[in-house]
Amino acid sequence: MKTLGLIGGMSAESTAVYYREINRLVRERLGGLHSAALILWSVDFAPIAAWQAKDDWDATGRALAEAARRLEAAGAEAIVICANTMHINAPQVQAATAIPLIHIADATAAALTARGVARPLLLATRYTMEKPFYRDRLAALGLPSLIPDAADRDRLQAIIFDELVKGVITPDSKAAALAMIDRGRAAGADGVIFGCTEIGLLIDPAELDLPAVDTAIVHCEAAVDFALG
């Protein structure tokens, strides 16, 4: 079994999902008392979020690259960034180490394709929805995506940063997200990407009548594929 290096804390709520899901998958595949070999570097999210808000992605990149170097030095054999938005710094993280980075968008694209989705609706932070790093990677893999309108993007950003990253789940926010999905389907979406690792805390993909990919879960599956491959 290879050792995974997780960069977490963005947020701690979804990082807990990563730890639990990776260990569950390893136990399921190997049986008995097996669990994952992993090292977690959990950052303080407050300065990361402040840099995001100021559009200072050089600062976030330096922080994540340093985390990746520390994980590699501790024995990690691959890096897993436990967040979608922070894959904006995937090039800096990959350049900082000699070990592979398991990219969340690649895992997402594979899962969408397996579900027969051709034009997904991307629900995520404003940064992930509006900046090209994520949507361009999906498009290059044959998956052009839709995003909600500006008002819905603002609402979703508030749901994520004011509620989900703090572990707050409300019926009103769930209803708002479900309404966004209905509008996306009306606009031509044939699937949904939970493109923020906290959205799976708000909505269960099984509740939807469109194929939906929880990026945190499929990212964990890709990480375990690597670890056990």
Rank of each mutant, 00 (worst) to 15 (best):
A186K: 14
I199R: 01
L123M: 14
R135Y: 08
I99Q: 09
L101Y: 08
A111D: 00
I102T: 15
Q94Y: 11
T125M: 11
D172Y: 08
G200E: 02
L122Y: 06
A78P: 01
D149M: 08
P171C: 12
A111H: 06
P171F: 14
M86Q: 10
R119S: 15
F194R: 02
E198I: 09
L121Y: 04
I81S: 07
I160H: 10
A186C: 02
T97A: 11
R126N: 14
I147A: 07
G195T: 03
G195Y: 03
L164W: 09
E163S: 06
R153L: 03
T108F: 14
A110M: 02
I199C: 11
K166P: 05
P144R: 11
S173K: 13
T170W: 09
R126I: 11
A186F: 03
I169M: 01
A150Y: 12
H87P: 00
M129L: 13
I193A: 06
D154K: 03
V168F: 02
I181G: 04
A176V: 02
G167E: 11
T113Q: 12
T97D: 00
V80E: 15
A187R: 10
V117K: 05
I79S: 10
I193R: 01
C82E: 11
Q157Y: 09
A98W: 03
P91E: 06
H103K: 05
A96W: 15
I104K: 13
Q157G: 02
A150T: 12
R137V: 07
A107I: 06
L123K: 08
V117N: 10
T197L: 04
I181C: 11
I88N: 12
D154T: 12
R155M: 09
A150D: 15
T108R: 10
L156T: 06
